[in-house]
Computed example of a mutant assay.
Amino acid sequence: MHNAHYNVKSKRTSLTCFLHTMEYDDRPDAAKRLEKARILRGFKTAKDAARFFGWSYETYIQHEQGTRGLSRAADRYAKAFRVGEGWLLTGEGDGPDGAPTTVPIVGLAGAGPEGSVLFATGDGNYGEVPAPLDASMNTEALEVRGDSMRGLANDGWLIFYDEKEAPRPEHLGEVCVCFLEDDRVLVKTPYPGSQPGLYHLESVNAAMMLDVPVRYFAFVTDIKPRRSAQRFANRNPEQPIQDVQRNGKAAS
């Protein structure tokens, strides 16, 4: 291009001319699809996704930047972002568009200290369930374990939630999945704390937690009793909890 020059940074190239600046993305197509799947899955940054799934950020960002081939990790990323492995690698098959027919059970609610959520580390540890009618690509389910949430959801019930978001006024007074700054995940109703950035978290069977810093909230969109919580199970229901705790430990 006449009167243009290239400033190369990573795999993206800034193309500057006297009219405007354009961004030319010369990454491999698979890397571009990986980024698209991550964004449509509800993770605004690569670091958010890596932290949520327990991946090495350095490895993941190299895959997304296209500086490292992702064929060996494609199956893991496809399951996490709910796209077809073939689509991720070649563009053929099930992409991130359209409503899901099933929703993964990603954790056990009420199973850890203070009713915290234990997340699965392996693929499919908790199985899948039919998606609620209003499910999006971001919808996930938690299976309630024990009686710590009785009055909201009993043992064996399913809690569905949607996109994780930074705290905003609309979350206050609504039942939410709360992703705390200390990496615990709780199902609580948030209220304003004593100062900005802090929240009081209310539950049905425990004392109010006061002035808790929260990273994300996700609205609870549906709760299904055990009888209607039909599963496509692909795990052993007697599997010890410690075998499927996220990052090898409870979110406590």
Results as ranks from 00 to 15, higher is better:
residue 39 I to Q: 08
residue 156 G to R: 04
residue 140 E to K: 10
residue 251 A to S: 14
residue 170 E to H: 09
residue 164 K to W: 04
residue 39 I to W: 08
residue 184 R to F: 10
residue 130 P to V: 07
residue 81 F to V: 07
residue 172 L to M: 09
residue 82 R to I: 10
residue 69 G to Q: 02
residue 57 Y to K: 13
residue 218 A to V: 00
residue 125 N to F: 10
residue 56 S to I: 15
residue 40 L to A: 00
residue 83 V to C: 06
residue 21 T to N: 10
residue 245 Q to Y: 07
residue 22 M to Y: 11
residue 87 W to H: 07
residue 135 A to I: 00
residue 223 I to S: 05
residue 80 A to P: 15
residue 177 V to L: 06
residue 104 P to E: 09
residue 57 Y to Q: 12
residue 226 R to N: 10
residue 96 P to N: 13
residue 211 D to L: 00
residue 29 D to P: 15
residue 215 R to W: 05
residue 139 T to C: 05
residue 83 V to Q: 04
residue 223 I to K: 05
residue 237 P to A: 09
residue 168 R to D: 14
residue 157 W to P: 04
residue 227 R to C: 12
residue 130 P to Q: 09
residue 91 G to L: 01
residue 154 N to W: 06
residue 84 G to R: 04
residue 34 L to G: 02
residue 249 K to I: 11
residue 173 G to K: 14
residue 112 G to P: 11
residue 82 R to E: 05
residue 84 G to E: 01
residue 195 Q to G: 13
residue 251 A to R: 10
residue 205 N to P: 04
residue 104 P to K: 13
residue 54 G to T: 14
residue 173 G to A: 15
residue 33 R to M: 05
residue 133 L to H: 02
residue 224 K to V: 07
residue 101 T to P: 07
residue 157 W to H: 04
residue 184 R to K: 05
residue 183 D to W: 00
residue 244 V to L: 15
residue 179 F to K: 03
residue 169 P to F: 05
residue 15 L to P: 01
residue 32 K to S: 01
residue 110 G to R: 03
residue 51 R to D: 14
residue 155 D to H: 05
residue 244 V to R: 14
residue 155 D to P: 03
residue 83 V to K: 00
residue 247 N to S: 12
residue 53 F to D: 05
residue 151 G to M: 08
residue 69 G to A: 08
residue 8 V to L: 14
residue 81 F to Q: 09
residue 91 G to P: 06
residue 79 K to H: 12
residue 175 V to S: 11
residue 252 S to Q: 15
residue 115 G to F: 10
residue 170 E to C: 10
residue 240 P to S: 14
residue 78 A to V: 01
residue 114 E to A: 11
residue 172 L to P: 03
residue 214 V to F: 00
residue 142 L to H: 04
residue 20 H to E: 11
